[in-house]
Design a protein around this nucleic acid. Sequence first.
DNA 1: AGCGGAACCTGTCGGC
DNA 2: TGCCGACAGGTTCCGC
Length: 275
Amino acid sequence: MPELPEVESVVRSLRPNIIGKTISQVDVFDSRLLENSRLADLQVVLVGQKFSQIQRRGKFILFILSNGYQLTAHLRMTGNYLFYHGQQPAGKHTRMVISFADGGQIHYQDMRRFGQLSLFSPESKIEKLEKLGPEPLSSDYTPQYLKNKIGQLKAPIKQLLLDQTIIAGIGNIYASEILFDALISPFKPANAINPAEYNRLVQSTRKILEKAILCQGSTISDYQTPEGKNGNFQECFQVYGRENEPCYKCSQPVKRVAQAQRSTFYCPACQEFTL
DNA sequence: AGCGGAACCTGTCGGC
DNA sequence: TGCCGACAGGTTCCGC
């Protein structure tokens, strides 16, 4: 489910519902969720406090507490946070429930159990956040930055777009969509990308991600916003999931190939591989 | 340094 | 109907 637009949608939707509310109870049903703490510690830190801020960094959700502690949450493949105004029974895949004094609840559900939650004290250095590259929608993400960062590398551009230390937040769906929009072959080595292409890559990244956020992300199978609504950006996919269907630009069939063990969708004609 | 492959889990879908 | 393999929005680790 979760690339930058989906995580951003979760954060925006949770924010007005939980900021400033007092946490009354924390229940965890799968200890694998907790990466660096035990349930008892989590309860001691959270209960009686409030969430003062919720932010996104890359694909991480940052819950900031009124006592200065921080939770970092990663949804991995199937994690999701749902908000309920009242009590709700835990479902089959519910791994954690946070209850508020006013009766509301957050349910974290995660079918595949890959998602993680970490607890950090106020002074902690959070290395996994510090390793992340710039936000693609920030002014730090420029053609010049990209060229400096990857212009010497010969790895295919598709793989580099998925590297969170280069750019934070792009995943498998949006990498294919961005490269199609930029008319760049997913196989092109970064060191063969010319200045005009770096410009297009940055423009297309912003365009696709901003549009996907407006659509509240993409729902393929299980992603929903915390209010239980589906995203809509899947209706705007140009290539992802469209193997053998006609390209919207040139009518040639869209192709799917495995790249670094992930599916890449592209139009061989519009994104011709040239050096 | 960098690459491919496996691992972590569970569910769904298509083919035989 | 049933079994089996492939595949799924992500990341990390291991060996070459």
